[in-house]
Design a protein around this nucleic acid. Structure first.
Lengths: 148, 148
DNA sequence: ATTACTGCAAACGTTTTGCAATTAC
DNA sequence: GTAATTGCAAAACGTTTGCAGTAAT
């Protein structure tokens, strides 16, 4: 609820309009809780708003990303998806099995590592990209009982 | 030199042939020392081997990646490139200004962080993707003297 | 001589652009 | 009423596939 108000206020403040397609994309991302490709967002969005267009999905994601409402998740394979993101929490932990993703802070631990790397390499580290992959609690149970 | 012998031996052992296009792609990556897109590799490679084809670049990169000779570097923007990689060292530190990239190990520091995240979330973390971005020593000097 | 490899052309999927109609403000 | 936004069609882009010719072993 709080989130719903927040993003609408953010858009308004940025001089953007609250439209049905934007509401639909936001609702799809809220319900998914895992990274979705623009195609996937379109498919799910069409169920709520049948004449939603793919171009609008792309433009909405671009807008949401510029407002930090959404973040891009990378995989080794190169495929990537968009995930709803609480601002400030920039690291993603994603389940390899069901795709569910959660975010975690972890600034402090990383600061240590970054310090060490800076000393060893002479680089001045600014930004970083950290994403973890594994099994969520539900999928651990599932694989534990069905595939022992 | 040692690297040169190493990759040729690796290919032979895998039942692959040492061909001119593959030598060219390897030389281009060696000389670049920063992530290059397939297009960029083609352009530079054509200078050494004019009738090099883009398809061959893709297939060569696919092969090199499967042998861990090369790794894929992601950027927030979504663009990505291929970087020559010493096997085992899986983390990339790339200069925002000149693009030069180095690799660093950092397994221990990360293990601590991963432990903490596992306890907090209940996820069983397997793989991870960590990439740092900043300024290399040369670009720090350059920006320090020209743009104070 | 055998068979992996190359390069072209063409297919393919994803992302971007131009524009007239629509809709939020 | 005004201006941002939408959705379509089409263009642009990056990547993959099929296949006949070439080259490494």
């Amino acid at each position: 609820m709080i989130l719903e108000l927040q993003w609408e206020a953010l858009l308004s403040r940025a001089g953007c309009r609250i439209t049905e397609p934007r509401r639909v994309v936001m609702r799809v991302l809220e319900q998914a809780q895992r990274p979705l490709t623009p195609q996937e967002i379109l498919e799910r969005g069409k169920l709520l708003h049948p004449n939603l267009g793919l171009v609008t999905v792309y433009r909405t994601l671009e807008l949401f990303e510029s407002l930090d409402l959404v973040c891009l998740v990378h995989r080794e394979g190169g495929c990537h998806g968009y995930l709803l993101s609480a601002p400030g929490h920039r690291h993603v932990l994603m389940c390899d099995s069901c795709g569910r993703a959660v975010e975690f802070p972890g600034q402090d631990d990383l600061a240590q590592l970054i310090d060490r790397v800076q000393q060893h390499t002479g680089y001045a580290v600014g930004d970083h990209l950290l994403q973890l992959f594994g099994l969520c609690p539900e999928c651990q149970e599932a694989s534990g009982s069905s595939v022992p």
